[in-house]
């Protein structure tokens, strides 16, 4: 769990492994800092909303549950939860706070230790980025992500969703995470709330278990936006600000060479430009807004 929006500070996952970083002192700080509490609850509320749980008591898995703040939100909605965390000090605080769910001391990078098809949903608040770092010799981030997603896929009910709010460090990390998720059988994509704000911008990886990617596209929720005009919002919705995870095709590699030739001969179309602009926006770069002139051919002047 990571909260400091000031990018100048070093990211905590670079400082030490989570079970060490969140020792007694940091865990206490976490439980008392009111700003952290507000931000974490807001993120949890949004994540549980995105889960779209059915209108009955459900079983939810909370990965990186920490002191049980996100669990409180699940309990308030009347659902049951089981929380996993790798930091004993954080679980200690969850016990002190008398969190309602059952707790597990467990590293999600080693796979989820549950039976098949038992959870109606899964949330994870500010935890996934910790898996992108190798803390011990021999740890390979991609393998740990694969282990997480493969085991998670099995223990979720078909049609259930997993929502991971996380702080990606760079586009490569996002790509690594989405590619591990889709290789494990999930469909879905990354949703960006407040994509135009540096501070409020939040990333949610939304995964659907057992739903074909073609259906996931229409099921992706719309992002929250602020200060966007209604038209801009609608346009963004149509094109889905979220980049969607596409399953790799067997001949993707083979056709890569061909595509290059095609691009060289043909002009890049409007779709290509819009896609590229989305990608750049996601990377936090300044991009001109889309209009009817985007990608339009210039008139021959002479």
């Amino acid at each position: 769990a990571w909260n400091c929006e000031e990018m100048s500070n070093s990211r905590p996952e670079h400082v030490a492994p989570p079970e060490i970083y969140y020792g007694e002192t940091e865990a206490k700080k976490y439980a008392q800092n009111s700003r952290i509490l507000t931000v974490q609850s807001q993120l949890s509320e949004r994540a549980v909303d995105l889960l779209g749980l059915p209108d009955r008591q459900c079983m939810v898995l909370d990965l990186g549950c920490g002191s049980g703040l996100s669990g409180d939100v699940i309990s308030e909605r009347g659902h049951l939860w089981i929380g996993c965390d790798v930091a004993p000090a954080m679980l200690g605080i969850a016990l002190e706070r008398e969190a309602e769910g059952d707790l597990l001391l467990h590293d999600m990078g080693s796979g989820i230790p549950f039976r098949n098809a038992v959870f109606d949903g899964c949330i994870s608040i500010s935890a996934l980025q910790w898996l992108c770092n190798a803390d011990k010799k021999g740890q390979v981030p991609f393998k740990r992500l694969m282990r997480l997603f493969e085991s998670l896929y099995k223990c979720m009910i078909r049609g259930a969703r997993a929502v991971f709010q996380f702080y990606p460090e760079n586009p490569q990390q996002m790509e690594m995470i989405s590619s591990a998720a889709m290789r494990s059988g999930f469909g879905g994509g990354i949703l960006v709330d407040y994509p135009n704000s540096t501070k409020a911008k939040k990333y949610y990886l939304i995964l659907f278990a057992g739903v074909p990617q073609s259906q996931c596209v229409s099921m992706m929720p719309a992002p929250l936006t602020e200060g966007m005009s209604v038209e801009d919002g609608a346009a963004a919705n149509r094109r889905k600000v979220a980049i969607l995870v596409e399953p790799p095709t067997a001949d993707a590699k083979a056709s890569r060479g061909k595509k290059k030739c095609k691009i060289l001969t043909n002009a890049k179309g409007v779709d290509w430009i819009l896609k590229k602009k989305d990608r750049m926006r996601l990377q936090g770069k300044k991009v001109a807004r889309d209009s009817k002139y985007t990608g339009r051919k210039r008139k021959a002047k002479f």
């Binding site: 790798v86 016990l95 021999g138």
Partner: peptide, 14 residues
């Protein structure tokens, strides 16, 4: 302990 199972695995068990 205190109702929390320790499911951590060693490196060679993963």
């Amino acid at each position: 302990n205190k109702g929390i199972p320790n499911m951590l695995l060693n490196e060679d068990e993963i």
